[in-house]
């Protein structure tokens, strides 16, 4: 007869012998048991710290520099914190850079031009992109996938080269001028490149996929029988569009518009390559202020000003996205 103790031992042995099977799997199991307490915090912490250091901290530095004094030195700005003899930190805040921005008409002009160009471009993208997205949705299945792929495809090729392509089309001796002369519409080349027109074309061309894709995603979720229901209830196509389709695609319209408007406002490459010296946008001014004039405080102040202009649209975008995410 077994004592309870012996019985216990036998049990332990039997479980032990069964666990010998596959030492390797046993070790991984042990690893999983060990890490199971802490892993969630690790998974959160790594990207969190990365973004804190490389995304958030840099903004504070830009902010700090924007309120520093510009100096001819390296780095070309004054230190914000000075150690006094008592060991107390005194903070000197100089709003010179911001005052400079407000006083100089050039900056205010650029600021307004940027917003105007990006708003108009966004509107053109919407007017063009909406029917395209709608047409894609309405196409038969296979065609739809191909068309969608065709909209995404340019995104995978170089942005820079797509802007460059328009330099060739719009140049004085470029394809468009050649075509117009050949057709007899004009007899000598007209100025297309290095103009506002060129910048509009460039922005619409490069950013229109960002309008079409959110619209498409939004329309895809749309129940097409709603149109039939509206028609059944006596709505004409036009009124169906304004009373059913448009309100339901509003989230897509907002998301797409912001995805075009926000980056277009800070655009640098397009005004530089297609606008030349004739179009000045805020992103370009920032780059030049920084690169050519080496005035870091002013560049930083421009960055902060640009950010302020975009904070509201960014917040709206976040809000729309999070609402979309829930539904």
């Amino acid at each position: 007869m077994m004592t309870p103790d012996a019985d216990n031992k036998a049990n332990i042995q039997s479980t032990h012998s069964s666990s010998v099977a596959g030492v390797g799997s046993r070790i991984t199991e042990l690893f999983f048991n060990k890490i199971h307490e802490k892993w969630r915090s690790i998974v959160v912490a790594i990207p969190f710290i990365w973004l804190l250091v490389f995304f958030l901290a840099p903004f504070f530095i830009v902010f700090k520099i924007s309120i520093a004094e510009s100096l001819i030195a390296s780095p070309p700005f004054s230190s914000l914190f000075d150690w006094t003899e008592e060991g107390v930190i005194t903070v000197r805040v100089i709003f010179d850079s911001f005052l400079y921005l407000v006083e100089d008409e050039l900056y205010l002009d650029t600021y307004l031009t940027s917003i105007r160009i990006s708003s108009i471009s966004t509107l053109i993208c919407l007017l063009l992109g909406y029917p395209i997205a709608y047409a894609i949705i309405k196409s038969p299945d296979t065609t739809r996938h191909i068309l969608l792929l065709m909209v995404i495809l340019p995104f995978w090729t170089s942005f820079l080269l797509r802007v460059y392509a328009w330099m060739g089309l719009l140049a004085d001796q470029g394809t468009i001028n050649d075509l117009l002369i050949w057709l007899g519409i004009i007899d000598k080349p007209i100025r297309l490149l290095y103009s506002h027109f060129a910048v509009y074309v460039g922005i619409v061309y490069t950013y229109i996929p960002f309008m079409i894709l959110p619209l498409y995603a939004n329309m895809e979720k749309l129940d097409m029988t709603l149109h039939e229901a509206a028609a059944d209830l006596g709505a004409k196509p036009m009124s169906t569009f304004f009373t059913v389709t448009l309100p339901l695609t509003l989230p897509g319209i907002i998301a797409g518009s912001l995805l075009v408007f926000i980056p277009a406002t800070g655009e640098y490459v397009i005004p530089d390559l297609l606008g030349g010296g004739n179009v000045s946008m805020i992103g370009k001014v920032l780059y030049n202020e920084f690169n050519a004039n080496h005035d870091w405080p002013v560049a930083s102040a421009v960055a902060i000003a640009l950010l302020l202009a975009l904070v509201v649209p960014m917040m709206i975008y976040q809000h729309v996205q999070s609402k979309e995410g829930v539904s």
Partner: peptide, 12 residues
Amino acid sequence: YGLKRDGVKKSE
């Protein structure tokens, strides 16, 4: 799957 998580012998 469930048996593997319990560390049951392969043959079993």
